[in-house]
């Protein structure tokens, strides 16, 4: 039951502690189960519905982790292709959402950026800024005026500092600070102990504070 509630909080109602949600939790799990069963029998519609239940969260984690729209789409696609291939063998011992988000963090951690794959990728600041602007544009759909405002420089420094973290530190920091997951949920996703997650968070915070010391 505890595991069930963890899963629920993790993926459906972050921040919600309402007891009255229990009925919905069961319904959500039953719906997942129903869709998984149908998808395994080759029902493409069921698979797509299953994807649509979680894909915004997957894309959000990916986008905030890689900070690149194109890379986020690559990760999104890789995650769901892995799910598609492995669904027939998925054992219902854990929740689908738990399994899915484990795949997501794994794919993020092993993802090789498109920029790194291209030998001509420039590492200078101007190029990074260009990239940041294009990303924000595509992620928020907002105009670029904000990118040139006073705060753009701070944004650039924060994003650069977060990007400079090691993959695991960056993953934990992203999941906690930008996605709002609880530490126990992150531990579940990354298949490690809560203590390890805390250690990563403390280390990431220390590094970022050092890096951004001049800003605040």
């Amino acid at each position: 039951m505890e595991f069930f509630q963890v899963g629920h909080n993790l993926f459906f109602n972050q921040g919600s502690n309402s007891v009255s949600q229990t009925g919905n939790q069961n319904e959500e799990l039953m719906l997942d189960l129903d869709l998984i069963t149908k998808a395994r029998q080759g029902d493409a519609m069921a698979f797509e519905q299953l994807v649509y239940r979680y894909d915004r969260q997957v894309l959000s984690i990916a986008a905030r982790y890689v900070q690149s729209a194109e890379d986020a789409k690559d990760i999104y696609q890789e995650v769901f292709l892995r799910v598609y291939r492995a669904l027939p063998k998925f054992e219902l011992r854990s929740e689908f959402s738990t399994w899915l988000f484990r795949i997501t963090t794994n794919v993020c951690l092993t993802h090789r950026s498109r920029r790194k794959r291209h030998t001509h990728a420039s590492l200078d600041r101007e190029s990074d800024e260009d990239h940041g602007a294009s990303l924000s544009e595509r992620l928020t759909g907002s105009d670029t005026a904000d990118q040139h405002a006073e705060g753009a420089d701070i944004t650039f420094h924060v994003q650069k500092a977060v990007n400079a973290l090691s993959p695991k530190l960056k993953m934990v920091f992203t999941l906690k600070h930008y996605e709002g997951y609880k530490i126990r949920e992150i531990a579940d996703m990354m298949e490690c102990t809560e203590g390890t997650v805390k250690k990563y968070l403390f280390t990431a915070t220390k590094k970022l504070r050092n890096e951004l010391e001049e800003i605040f």
Binding site: R56, S60, A72, R138, L139, G141, G151, T155, Q159, T205
Partner: peptide, 21 residues
């Protein structure tokens, strides 16, 4: 620090990007 990283490092995923994906 927490306020800074939230305000300056966060962004929402757009519907357009989701549609493309």
């Amino acid at each position: 620090f927490s306020t800074l990283v939230h305000q300056r490092g966060s962004f929402e995923t757009s519907d357009e990007l989701l549609r493309e994906a």
